[in-house]
């Protein structure tokens, strides 16, 4: 019996197929998000099944999560990304107690109890200043691929100060910095620091134990260090950070399937 988790995020769609009894990951897929999110997710799902010689009839339950979860019409149910990231990270890092997830549009800070249940959480406000969207904006402005930002930031000698708390105003600051001849590496490093500090501001106190960093932004080199500095705590990047939400959704699907008559 197989279960599936689909994380329809604002930046990417992620899918995890799980063997229910063993909770073993069978396959994963990631694709850029688009306009027709339901169709895109369905296509990716079908493709993943085909690549792994699996049939739809073998999948007993599908849970959708993420920003676009409600429009995944072929999912059996939806669960928020808070619960799914907690489940996914906990599966990969058994003693995780504090989780930071920075995705394309949201950033979250989760506190788990010793059993891995979510005790409390905080999420960013409407502004995207503490999210991956900020990185996209700076990548566009500097005409760089998103994947190159971390490498570029590593060359920074004096990270720029981005003072605005609003991503729109911050973009204006970036334009000003470019106009004044600032090194793009310093600008990117400044943006990474700004995201880290914005995220750390959600933490009410010193995090409980090492912070597990997940979400697509965890793949940006240097982001973990900036976050550790801002939180004044050890930060460890979760294995496969981009798929933890989908993995959590698949685990919840498996748990729900096992309770079905």
């Amino acid at each position: 019996m197989i279960c599936a988790g689909i994380d329809a995020g604002s930046r990417a769609v992620k899918i995890v197929l799980l063997e229910s009894p063993t909770r073993r990951i069978l396959a994963t897929a990631v694709a850029d998000q688009g306009v027709q999110q339901d169709k895109l997710a369905a296509r990716l799902y079908t493709q993943l099944l085909e690549e792994n010689n699996l049939r739809e009839s073998e999948v007993s339950r599908i849970v959708a999560t993420g920003y676009g979860r409600s429009i995944i019409s072929f999912a059996n149910t939806t669960v928020t990304e808070i619960t799914c990231h907690a489940a996914g990270v906990r599966r990969l890092v058994a003693d995780a107690r504090t989780i930071v997830d920075i995705g394309g549009q949201d950033s979250k800070l989760l506190h788990l109890d010793a059993d891995g249940k979510v005790r409390d959480f905080a999420m960013n406000d409407r502004c995207a200043a503490g999210t991956g969207r900020f990185l996209e904006i700076v990548a566009n402005r500097l005409d760089l691929p998103l994947a190159d930002l971390g490498r570029l930031a590593a060359q920074s000698r004096q990270p720029a100060q981005i003072s605005s708390m609003c991503v729109v105003f911050a973009e204006t600051e970036i334009i000003g910095l470019l106009a004044s001849g600032a090194d793009p590496a310093d600008i990117v490093a400044g943006v990474i620091n700004a995201i880290a500090h914005r995220t750390a501001a959600m933490a009410p106190h010193t995090p409980n134990g090492p912070v597990i960093f997940t979400g697509g932004v965890a793949l940006v080199p240097g982001m973990d260090k900036a976050l550790a500095d801002a939180l004044q705590s050890k930060v460890a990047i979760c294995p496969n950070p981009q798929i933890t939400g989908a993995l959590g959704a698949a685990l919840i699907a498996a748990s729900q399937a096992s309770q079905q008559p």
């Binding site: 669960v79 928020t80 808070i82 619960t83 979510v118 005790r119 959480f121 999420m123």
Partner: peptide, 8 residues
Amino acid sequence: ALVETVKH
């Protein structure tokens, strides 16, 4: 998410 957290 708050509802899910309470239920957990």
